[in-house]
Nucleic acid binder design. Structure first.
Length: 827
RNA sequence: GCCGGAGUGGCGGAAUUGGUAUACGCGCGCGACUCAAAAUCGCGUCUCGCAAGGGAUGGGAGUUCAAGUCUCCCCUCCGGCACCA
């Protein structure tokens, strides 16, 4: 073939690879294994996005390199197909979600294949396949058995537009992640998963894994571990305590009031109690009602002024001072965090300060004021300025510790002059408190009032209560329905299928009803990587042997989007740990290494969206330029972990590169390449080998471009050298390299050939260009042989013609020689 | 407000981690080939200057023989969290 015609080559090799099953992973093969994973796509109606191709190509390159390095590689693919867009489409068109899914996965599969990814298609999975979700339901049952799945009446985030309950993670800035409508709170009975029981391990075990640092930080922030004390404030004249959580037990002498969250059950109890001491019940009830009506956004609005009401008649005893202090309810205290109550220390907490100012509550300073920042006092200001500001804020109620450093207690009785950190422990102990750890993480709302999800395998029996579906009856199949619309009562469309809902109780055989809630779309993706090990198993979610083999040390490398850091990634770590506790998997963490790709934005740096009409259909690029060009382009476009803007104009550069490769292949000789060329070939092999490991695909391609430019200039290129080049290019551009490889007489596939090794001797230069600086400014360049000693170089450089004028008649103070790089003459 | 990340040509971006800033690619200009166009190839392309030279990596200081890289201050942009006690 004279010209590079991608249309002929690409389809041909895709078929050939399929036929020869070169990408199929074989469980149990001796030697090294490598499990590379990308997030399985949601088969949306929009078709494959160029963003999918970016992350898939990256892992494709890595897994292809591993295969060539002799690893037994698993690079699987499947469909995360339950979810709202498909269901919404079904509502609009009346087409069954299962049908829509089939159509979409067919399109996605064809598109993925057209790009030439080395997926093992024999292990394809689909979360909506009953053979798959049987095991999703099974895991749920195991969680139920262990008490991790429970039904609770809780206030949940509710999207009035989607008519669906949302997890905290799905509410973004008080708005529904999907539709953007303002969310409200709704009290509903929901299935919950007790992810909080794993909070500590989810936090701690991040130390064990190789994740990008920013991923670890984001997860840690989300889990929100914080160490503090639980302290009891006794209510005067009542046999009741208010338990508060604080990280600043050291400031308790400054606790001049206590605040309870309005939703706190203690408040309800106090009001309804016959002997209720509250004298302003009506006012309190009114405030609670007000708070309830508030939307989430209002409640967390930035410049919102704090509000609250005093529980008049109720006083508590500060356990440190034994003084009586008042009790307030205010919505700046969250019912869902800590104990739902706080001791307020207005002198040392900005929120308490604002509240105390507004309602004229006592402010008492108990830490040396010089150590305190916040309250408009900046860390950068001098101690004197800080002191002055603090004095004006606290209106003279200020004294200072006699210590030279400032983090010491004052006005704190016998604890005066203790250091903050020591005081936390000592005071907690002295007043009978408890050191505890709290988390921001909340239990996972696992119910969805929707059709297109895994039915939660539970049965409600009037006599026996909630009864799990026996394992032998799994899967609980989704029935066909006529309308997919959620009901206004907030129940799933499944609720109106009486034939399906009405069933027998597995225990008493009496009349019973099925649970009509379904699981969220995060369920199926929480364990899918395990199913790939043994995707067709009918008896277990995967066989012990297959899991032991492929998950021996977890998924070796998992690449995905940052947007899943606190969702899928956290959820699946939780499920995995649960399965680890059940001894189904042998590692406590699912993924050894996690990296992340940047988004591809449209030209101009805005998000690609159908409504703006700036999306790119990969199909067009594959047809016009070829899959190899598309792959090269997406890897060359910019640093892999950063967001990049698409530029159709620039694609041509990647195509030209491949054209050059093709043309070069027509002019090879049996002669040996020049030393210079050999040198650069081996340097490039080294660079590509390293760049792939660090995901520096853009610089890898750039160095291959440099090599190609050099080869064009070379008088002759040996076939064997060119073949090595083809091999390092093969993971990036699998089709063209395979074609040329065979044109050069090779019979076996290039993709299972051995990854070339660079020859250390061949990357050593014997002569090297050195820049010469005079007083730090580059004045000349000169070439020396690398075996010269430092002194020899220093002598030589002064004799250089170009340097002479700069150093003549000057006193040379110093000469600095950095071997192989630069020489700086200081005059 | 807090926690991350980033500011380099007309554009996407390199820079061996303190050692020749602007590699590679796009675009643009000129030329060759062609009846012509496309493709391809060659040359040029930070800036001021005729030149010798000078100035540039968001801005300002500092450390160093040497700073895009380190330190301090300021500005801008992006991402995450946000009354978490």
């Amino acid at each position: 073939m004279k010209n590079y015609d991608h249309t002929k080559i690409e389809k041909k090799w895709q078929k050939e690879w399929d036929k020869n099953k070169i990408y199929q992973a074989k469980t149990g093969v001796k030697g090294k294994k490598f499990y590379g994973l990308i997030e399985f796509p949601y088969p949306s109606g929009a078709g494959l996005h160029v963003g999918h191709i970016r992350s898939n190509t990256a892992m494709d390159i890595i897994t292809r390199k591993r295969r060539m390095e002799g690893y037994n590689v698993l690079y699987p693919i499947g469909w995360d197909a339950f979810g709202l867009p498909t269901e919404n489409y079904a509502i609009k068109t009346g087409i069954q979600p299962a049908k829509v899914t089939k159509t979409n996965t067919d399109i996605f599969r064809r598109q993925l294949k057209s790009v030439g990814f080395g997926f093992d298609w024999s292990r394809e999975i689909n979360t909506t396949d009953p053979k798959y979700y049987k095991w999703t339901q099974w895991v749920f049952l195991q969680m139920y058995k262990k008490g991790l799945a429970y039904k609770a009446k809780t206030s949940i985030n509710w999207c009035p537009s989607c008519k669906i309950g949302l997890a905290n993670e799905e509410v973004v800035g008080g708005e529904c992640e999907r539709c953007g409508a303002e969310t409200t709170k709704k009290v509903k009975e929901q299935w919950m998963l007790a992810i909080t029981k794993y909070a500590d391990r989810l936090d701690k075990d991040l130390d064990k894994v190789d994740y990008l640092e920013k991923i670890k930080i984001q997860q840690r922030n989300w889990i929100g571990k914080s160490e503090g004390s639980e302290l009891d404030f006794k209510i005067k004249d009542l046999d009741l305590n208010i338990k508060v959580f604080t990280t600043r037990a050291d400031t308790i002498f400054g606790a001049t009031y206590v605040v309870i969250a309005p939703e706190h059950e203690l408040v309800t109890n106090l009001i309804n109690n016959d002997q209720s001491p509250i004298t302003n019940k009506e006012e309190v009830k009114k405030y609670i009602a007000q708070v309830k009506d508030k939307k989430d956004i209002e409640r967390t609005a930035e410049e919102k002024e704090k509000t609250g009401v005093e529980l008049k008649g109720v006083m508590v005893i500060n356990p440190a001072t034994n003084e009586e202090v008042p009790v307030w309810i205010a919505d700046y205290v969250l019912a869902t965090y800590g104990t739902g109550s706080v001791m307020a220390v207005p002198a040392h907490d900005e929120r308490d300060f604002l509240f105390a100012k507004k309602y004229n509550l006592e402010i008492k300073c108990v830490i040396d004021p010089r150590s305190i920042i916040g309250f408009g006092v900046s860390e950068k200001e001098s101690n004197l300025d800080r002191m002055k500001k603090r004095e004006s804020i606290l209106k003279g109620e200020v004294s200072y510790s006699s210590n030279n450093s400032f983090d010491y207690l004052i006005n704190s009785g016998k604890f005066n002059n203790l250091k903050i950190e020591d005081a936390k422990k000592e005071i907690t102990k002295a007043i009978g408190g408890k050191i505890v750890t709290k988390f921001k993480l909340r239990d996972w709302v696992f119910s969805r009032q929707r059709y297109w999800g895994e039915p939660i395998p539970m049965i409600h029996c009037d006599k026996c209560g909630i009864v799990p579906v026996p394992e032998k009856d799994l899967p609980v199949l989704l029935p066909k329905v006529k309308s997919y619309k959620p009901t206004d009562s907030g129940e799933s469309p499944l609720a109106i299928i009486s034939k399906w809902v009405n069933t027998k109780c597995p225990v008493c055989k009496g009349k019973a009803k099925r649970e009509t809630d379904t699981m969220p779309n995060w369920a199926g993706s929480s364990w899918y990587y395990l199913r790939y090990a043994d995707p067709k198993n009918k008896k277990e979610l995967a066989s012990k042997g297959a899991l032991k083999y492929w998950m021996k040390n977890g998924v070796d490398w998992y690449n995905g989007g940052m947007e899943h850091t606190t969702l899928h990634l956290l959820y699946s770590r939780f499920w995995h740990k649960f399965l680890y506790d059940l001894k189904i998997v042998s590692t406590s963490e699912p993924y050894m290494k996690r990296t992340s790709h940047g988004m591809i934005l449209a030209e101009g740096g805005v998000k690609m969206s159908k409504s703006i009409g700036n999306t790119i259909d990969p199909k067009d690029i594959v047809e016009t330029y070829g899959a190899d060009t598309l792959r090269i382009y997406e890897m060359f476009i910019g640093p892999f972990d950063q967001a990049v803007s698409w530029s159709t104009e620039s694609i041509i550069g990647s195509r030209r590169f491949l054209d050059k490769v093709w043309r070069l292949s027509l002019h090879l000789t049996d002669n040996i390449s020049s030393k210079v060329l050999e040198n650069i070939i081996h340097k490039t092999i080294k660079k590509i080998s390293q760049d792939i490991e660090s995901m520096s695909f853009n610089t890898a391609i750039s160095s291959m471009m440099i090599l190609v430019n050099e080869m064009e200039k070379a008088e002759n290129i040996s076939e064997s050298d060119f073949k090595m080049f083809l091999q390092i290019l093969a993971p990036f551009a699998p089709h063209i390299t395979e074609e040329i490889w065979h044109n050069l007489g090779e019979k076996k596939t290039i993709h299972l050939s051995a990854w070339p090794k660079w020859n250390k001797k061949k990357i050593v230069d014997d002569r090297i260009k050195i820049a010469v600086q005079v007083n730090g400014k580059v004045r000349a360049e000169f070439t020396i042989s690398t075996d010269l000693s430092e002194n020899e170089v220093k002598v030589l450089v002064l004799k250089e013609k170009n340097i002479m004028p700069w150093v003549q008649n000057k006193v040379i103070k110093r000469i600095i020689y950095v071997p192989g790089r630069i020489i700086n003459i200081v005059v």
